[in-house]
């Protein structure tokens, strides 16, 4: 039969044939430059030179503060981990990574991943729906490829696009970082608190880890937007609904957690960020890494089955 890879190539071409796609990349690049300009002008001669005094003040003030005992356990843990890391820095003379260094700047790129999520939602939500809105679905489906293959190619390319955006973000920040702050081959180690001890890892490994966890979130959001795309067959509706439901979902989870509704842990938005099991703490104490992986997997399966049923079984009348 005809090669499946050609379908993937076609979908990729469709995304990049639109001029507007380059605006998204441009926006990321411009934000990177602005970010660098701001970091450059704000952090000159600031407190980063006196990191030792700062760390000592932080440790002593926390130790003398009685009110910490009344905080919930997970917050207390987070604070204690911070104290342990600061102590470790003092003991081993490891200053924190300066924000106006190349690696400090690249580390800051993680804050832009949220924006990328939005872009990826827009692309995924319009992937199937725009073919219906524009009527191009007809000439796409009357080819020797069944609908499952067409759908899979679109799904894969939506996720590939997410990866490409992440890669672009990383590379753009590396380049901008080098230009503004100079190349810095040997970064300071990144410190994290794991299994009761401090672990040193390279900054690059740490950044890759952050990006990998972002991929899980992006996969969930791609699948979610993609499902709405298949169900509504209307790009404007699918994009609007995906973004709206994402905000409602995330806010709802925070709201439910704040009011101690335990069942909030079954909502996918409470489980997408797996990094909390390695650094920090989960939203609800009873949650574990395995639990979150299972919940995410079940949601992914449900989203994709709904997409598939809707795409392959319904009549094409547009």
């Amino acid at each position: 039969m005809n090669k499946f890879i050609n379908l993937v190539i076609n979908e990729h071409i469709k995304i990049y044939s639109k001029k507007s796609i380059w605006v998204l990349f441009g926006v990321i690049f411009v934000i990177g430059i602005l970010n660098a300009v701001i970091v450059n002008s704000v952090t000159k001669n600031d407190a980063q030179d006196q990191w030792q005094q700062n760390a000592e003040i932080q440790i002593s003030s926390i130790k003398s503060d009685q009110s910490i005992d009344q905080l919930p356990d997970n917050l207390k843990d987070t604070i204690n981990e911070q104290v342990a890391i600061s102590q470790y820095r003092l003991d081993n003379n490891i200053p924190p990574q300066r924000s106006d260094s190349m690696w400090g700047f690249v580390q800051g790129s993680a804050a832009i991943i949220g924006l990328i999520t939005m872009f990826v939602i827009v692309i995924s939500a319009s992937s199937v729906a725009s073919e219906f809105s524009k009527g191009t679905i007809k000439l796409l489906l009357i080819r020797p490829h069944n609908r499952s293959k067409i759908l899979l190619s679109k799904y894969l390319v939506s996720f590939i696009f997410a990866l490409e955006m992440l890669l672009f973000l990383l590379v753009a920040y590396l380049i901008i970082g080098v230009i503004f702050f100079g190349a810095d081959g040997s970064s300071l180690p990144y410190l994290s608190f794991q299994n009761g001890g401090i672990i040193e890892s390279s900054m690059f490994t740490h950044i890759l880890t952050v990006y990998s966890f972002a991929c899980v979130e992006l996969l969930v959001m791609v699948s979610f937007a993609f499902m709405l795309s298949c169900l509504t067959r209307n790009s404007a509706l699918a994009i609007g609904l995906s973004i709206f439901l994402m905000f409602v979902g995330v806010t709802l989870v925070q709201f439910l957690v704040a009011f101690d509704y335990e069942w909030a842990k079954y909502i996918v938005f409470a489980n997408m960020d797996l990094s909390v099991y390695f650094e920090g703490s989960p939203m609800i104490e009873s949650m574990t890494l395995t639990f979150s992986i299972v919940v995410v997997a079940i949601y992914l399966l449900a989203f994709n089955v709904l997409s598939w049923l809707s795409f392959t079984k319904r009549d094409v009348l547009s």
């Binding site: 044939s17 191009t136 007809k138 000439l139 009357i142 020797p144």
Partner: peptide, 17 residues
């Protein structure tokens, strides 16, 4: 379908290409 070619109603192709 390999033996068939066609147009249904309007010829809707990718406008941006």
């Amino acid at each position: 379908i390999t033996h068939v070619g066609g147009i249904v109603e309007n010829p809707e192709l990718y406008q941006f290409m």
